[in-house]
């Protein structure tokens, strides 16, 4: 446990010094502080549009950070041979991988926390929203964090056996597909011309692929007219799904990494 924690915190230390990530974060923070200011001019009904924009910026930036942060993590360790100085200590490979993963999640949480905090402050001062609106803005990023942890788990899994650039396309691709998975499936399955066998296939594929859409609760494009009856159970379900998927990916990643020659 000690070793995992030590590796995780060294990973955070490295992550928050990566210039690419800082630049991305800075651009996002700039956008997030401009959006509410633009909204000042428009009517009060624009508030929900503004919230969507804030969410979009946070989500997109976090995904970019999650991918860029994780695809290089293991390959860099091998290339710079820092991994040897760690694996020759009483550290098992699974501990190393988990440490790296938790470090990535912590760094993500930190950066997402900063974005959310800034959004809340700007929102509060410029729009004077009521408490329920504030809660809405504060809650969504929690689901995003679970979503990004899942994305990071995908990227770290692939990083145990593919090169960073390939991994970038795989992870980004899976995230994009996973984001539109629900509407994609719906349009396919509700089409009367689809053969039953194709429907079963579609069902199978959609349940295997990681589903990212469910983490974007308030997105009217992904969830048109959806009213969540029991919010607590919805959150619990999506978070539980995420954690299970993450656990499976990490176990597979460990299996691959254990056999790998570094």
């Amino acid at each position: 446990m000690n070793a995992i924690w030590a590796i995780a915190s060294s990973t955070v230390g490295e992550a928050i010094r990566r210039k690419v990530l800082l630049v991305i974060l800075l651009i996002a923070l700039l956008l997030l502080s401009i959006i509410p200011a633009l909204g000042v001019l428009s009517a009060r009904s624009e508030m929900s549009a503004m919230i969507s924009t804030i969410f979009f910026v946070i989500r997109f930036t976090s995904a970019l950070i999650a991918i860029i942060l994780t695809i290089y993590m293991i390959p860099n360790e091998i290339e710079r041979r820092t991994i040897y100085t760690i694996l020759c200590k009483p550290v098992q490979r699974w501990q190393f991988l988990l440490g790296k993963y938790f470090g990535a999640v912590l760094a993500l949480a930190l950066m997402m926390g900063i974005m959310t905090a800034l959004s809340l402050v700007m929102f509060w001062f410029l729009k004077h929203p009521d408490a329920s609106k504030m809660a809405e803005v504060a809650k969504q990023p929690i689901l995003y964090l679970v979503e990004m942890s899942l994305l990071a788990a995908i990227a770290i899994f692939f990083s145990t056996f593919v090169a960073p650039l390939v991994n970038f396309f795989i992870s980004t691709g899976l995230w994009l597909v996973g984001t539109v998975l629900n509407p994609l499936y719906d349009s396919f399955a509700t089409n009367p011309q689809t053969a039953p066998i194709m429907k079963t296939m579609a069902k199978l594929i959609t349940s295997i692929l990681p589903n990212f859409a469910n983490y974007d609760v308030k997105n009217p494009i992904l969830h048109p007219g959806v009213v969540i009856q029991n919010e607590a159970s919805y959150y619990l379900k999506t978070v539980g799904y995420g954690f299970m998927y993450i656990a499976i990916l990490l176990i597979l990643g460990i299996v691959v990494f254990d056999r790998r020659e570094v």
Partner: peptide
């Protein structure tokens, strides 16, 4: 691994750490 150690060829250490932090980091791996 508890009783041996290894210095890789042309090693590279986490550059953001100070010498002292680096030693504390490796110590915590034990």
């Amino acid at each position: 691994h508890r009783v041996i150690s290894y210095l890789p060829e042309r090693p590279y250490y986490y550059e953001h750490m100070t010498g002292f932090e680096l030693l504390k980091f490796y110590d915590s791996l034990f």
